[in-house]
Write a protein that binds this DNA or RNA. Sequence first.
DNA 1: GTAGTGTCTCTAGTAACTAGAGGTTCAAGA
DNA 2: TCTTGAACCTCTAGTTACTAGAGACACTAC
Lengths: 138, 138
Amino acid sequence: MYSIGELSKRTKVKVPTIRYYEEMGLLSEPERTEGNQRRYDAAGLERLSFIKHARDLGFSIEAISKLIELQGHPDRSCQAASEIAVSQLSDVRAKIKRLRALEKELVRISKGCDGEGVSQDCYVLASLADHELCRHGH
Amino acid sequence: MYSIGELSKRTKVKVPTIRYYEEMGLLSEPERTEGNQRRYDAAGLERLSFIKHARDLGFSIEAISKLIELQGHPDRSCQAASEIAVSQLSDVRAKIKRLRALEKELVRISKGCDGEGVSQDCYVLASLADHELCRHGH
DNA sequence: GTAGTGTCTCTAGTAACTAGAGGTTCAAGA
DNA sequence: TCTTGAACCTCTAGTTACTAGAGACACTAC
């Protein structure tokens, strides 16, 4: 049996976050000591590792809920799981695309100002004031 | 003079968001009609466009505050502005890097499951449960 | 004058935590 | 067995950048 601090160390999920996951229903309520402290078993550790891994991959709490629900029904179709993963992938790709556009624009803007001049002549400030200076849609 | 709705249409910033920017100190308090409605001048419109553009580029409200402060002092060095832009650029690059790693992992995970099987054999669920299956650090 | 749309303030909700207060329990050493 | 200090408990509130809704008032066009 692990205390919440033990669990935290093993999974690298912070203690308040573990409690938060419990509150959100991702983790089921663990046993308690007589003094009301949480005690987790191996299943609890596994579950939290799953959550941590999914969060690291950017899945939302809601998506993880659904995945955990599925996990609890081994005989059910896993189409939903596949869909969640695919949708997460396309989210990530959309974000990358957007960030790449921003990156280009920021490179252009940064290059225009070395920080040596005064605010009045600053290309960073001028660029932000005038969208026309932008070369890449965003 | 523009009403808040006019301003909203011209800048494509929603009305409550404009009020929010005012509350955060990004926009100075505009004049009011006798009936207490906001009325903006050209300077207000320009300022909001600046904010919108900066937000679109991912700058935080705090960063925009500093940029606006600088804008108000044309004779001051623009080093801070340059630094803010450079730091924003490195933030964006760091995000892209991380997202690319996630993308690779998600592609691998998604490919492993076509959604035709059952939850028990699902590669998506298995991958999340076992970090060892991951090929790319994240 | 009146109808209908726009605007006002205020509160609360969103996602996924994080921080802090004030109090209790546990485990290890003396 | 006692004590001490770290770990734990619950609860509230704060973070970011908004968004939604309620209930009331203002403006504009006919």
